[in-house]
Design a protein around this nucleic acid. Sequence first.
DNA 1: ATGGCGGTGGAGCACCGA
Length: 260
Amino acid sequence: MRIATWNVNSVRQRADHLAAWLTEASPDICCLQELKCTEETFPRLEIEALGYNIELLGQKTFNGVAILSKYRIDHVTRGLPGDESDEQARFIEVEISTAKGALRVASIYAPNGNPIGTEKFPYKIGFLDRLIARAKTHLANEENFVFAGDYNIIPMPEDAAIPSQWVNDALFQPESRAKWRELLSLGLTDAIRTTTGDTNLYTFWDYQAGAWQKNNGIRIDHLLLSPNCADKLISTAIDKHVRGWEKPSDHVPVRIDVEL
DNA sequence: ATGGCGGTGGAGCACCGA
């Protein structure tokens, strides 16, 4: 089974890219972030025509997450539990049935958190705490799960081309990175890091200042695997070439193959 | 780099992202 995540930065602007990439990579499950649209304006027909079932949590203008699945979707959780006042569309989780049992997949768009010193940063940390709580629940239930998405965390200095550029940024704050380590300490596996020793692996390049041309990127889109899923991991890939397409998203797809 | 680009809403330019 192939599972992917991609922050598309407006699914309507990126509908053609999405269709082209789904056709070439053919993921069984694809998590999308930053839809920047509601259910009503989501390009549902084009994606359904490629053989996908779709569940999404939309929002006008900002955020928005979706999961596309070639498998039937048995159950959906919209919104990350733990804060009734959170109205931002940043989390959706589905349950599907595979030949080897049930699998949960979440599409996550963690808050950016900038600028530090505003309410945005504690919102980011609070969101990550709620994500940790959900992972704990799933682990206690011995669920197979994949938490995929834009975490807005640069885990380590080697995950940035120029780490010094990020020291005052929410993505690279010690508190943000500590939440990442907390997720790993629960027993989750960073799919990319566990399958390669390469360090110049990035998933985001800013639109500004020629970041793409200089390969000045950061790795912030991640797939975290439960222990039972990590045991079945076969391979991983970052589809970097998509960043070179005409009018691209600033993020590229990341994908894994698991024996499920 | 104090935000250089790109998307949204809505018809200016403010707000957001990372």
